[in-house]
Amino acid sequence: MQPFSNKKTIALLKSSVLLDNDEAMNSLYAVMYRKVLHFILKNSGSEQDADDVFQDSLMVLYKLAKRDQLDDVTNIQSYFFSICRNLWYKALKKKQKTTTLTEAHHSLPEAAMQISAMLALEKSDFLDQLLKSLGESCRKVLIYYYYDRLKMKEIMKRMNFSSEQVAKNKKSGCMKKLKELIAANPGFKDLLN
């Protein structure tokens, strides 16, 4: 696959929700994956680390594009690489901290890791529960509006609503439902982050 120009990559990332295609992401994989892999392998990482960092960076890039924060980027590939590099350095720093702790306190990190694993499991369980309780249409409406930042008109088309007002009412109803679900499980607020 040929690399796309700056403008085209950004435009595709921005519109990929609307078009339901992943052209921009595929193009970045074709052009950037090996560079990122080499960088991470040379900097104490593994292939799995590279996969994780690459995917996390794509998510960051997608979100920036949706929030109109890439319009001034002069070179999308260098910019993407700098996101990967920063995420890897952060992960590496975290790994080094854990190593230092392990050396200093043998029993502590194990307990901490168990708690952290339990919290992650609880959080994932809650999100699953939330997904089921919210229902597919509410999940979609909320994600389209708040996460993908789509306009009501677009949501109306995608969800086959009869008018923008119907879409708006649905969004309000779903937010109310979400609020009630969270209120019914106060302990889960601590699982955020």
């Binding site: 999100l127 939330l130 997904l131 919210l134 999940r139 909320l142 994600i143 708040y146 996460y147 993908d148 937010m175 979400l178 609020k179 969270i182 955020l192």
Partner: peptide
Amino acid sequence: SLKYVEQLG
């Protein structure tokens, strides 16, 4: 609530 939507997204 928005933070939860962010997580679902």
